[in-house]
């Protein structure tokens, strides 16, 4: 009985919500994202309150380079689309293609994360813009760093799901797990849309 959920093949429409456990996960995770909205709003609010408090350290116009940020944005937006593709294949019960698209998502996410680390390194060493330089620098690194931490966590999550299920394909037990991991990934993208707008673009406009 209980083991039925581990059988692969013959999935219903919306397999992620076919079991009670799946529906609970789906609902609970959406609510968690509602809470995360407030978490990031608090960080954004703090950043906005302090964004001009650079205390003789570098200001936002001095350091931000839009070229890099644009590439990062495209990478993350694309990874959002690739995870949509992964879910598309999950719903068609095509495990191999789902794994492929998740793999592409992970590669794009890693590239994003690598560029973000490069960016921070560049600020610290090129502009002497460290975490303790000013209230602005603390707020900047905390907000963007929290997002980066979410990206890193999401990558670890997706990779561990891919490895765990590599040999057994899709079933009613793991489809909800894949689904909410992809919701998390989209949410990371949602936050980034506001980061590139509010932090980088407004930082250049002044």
């Amino acid at each position: 009985m209980a083991e039925d959920v581990l059988k692969s093949g013959n999935l219903p429409e919306n397999p992620e919500r076919a079991t009670l456990e799946g529906r609970n996960k789906f609902m609970g995770f959406w609510f968690f994202l509602g809470g995360e909205t407030v978490l990031f709003a608090s960080l954004f609010g703090t950043y906005l309150a302090l964004r001009n408090s650079n205390a003789e350290g570098p200001a936002s116009e001095d350091i931000f380079g839009l070229g890099l940020v644009f590439i990062m944005t495209v990478l993350l937006l694309t990874s959002s689309l690739t995870s949509v593709y992964a879910m598309y294949h999950m719903k068609n019960n095509d495990f191999k293609k789902m794994q492929l698209w998740l793999g592409i998502t992970v590669v794009l996410g890693l590239a994003f994360l690598g560029m973000e680390i490069y960016e921070f390194y560049h600020y610290v060493h090129g502009y002497e813009f460290g975490y303790t330089t000013s209230a602005f620098s603390s707020a900047f690194y905390t907000l963007v760093g929290f997002h980066g931490g979410h990206v890193a966590f999401g990558l670890l999550w997706i990779v561990s799901l891919m490895i765990r299920n590599a040999k057994r394909g899709l079933n009613l037990y793991n489809t909800p797990k894949f689904y909410i991991a992809s919701l998390y990934w989209h949410f990371i993208d949602v936050v980034w849309v506001f980061i590139f707008t509010v932090v980088y673009l407004l930082g250049k406009v002044g």
């Binding site: 650079n54 975490y131 603390s138």
Partner: peptide, 23 residues
């Protein structure tokens, strides 16, 4: 933010470095 200010030298609430305690 409080933890970062106290333990890692962040400046959220430190007025000398542009911080703002009202936050």
């Amino acid at each position: 933010l409080l933890t970062f200010d106290r333990l890692f030298g962040a400046n959220f609430f430190n007025p000398d470095m542009g911080g703002n305690a009202i936050i």
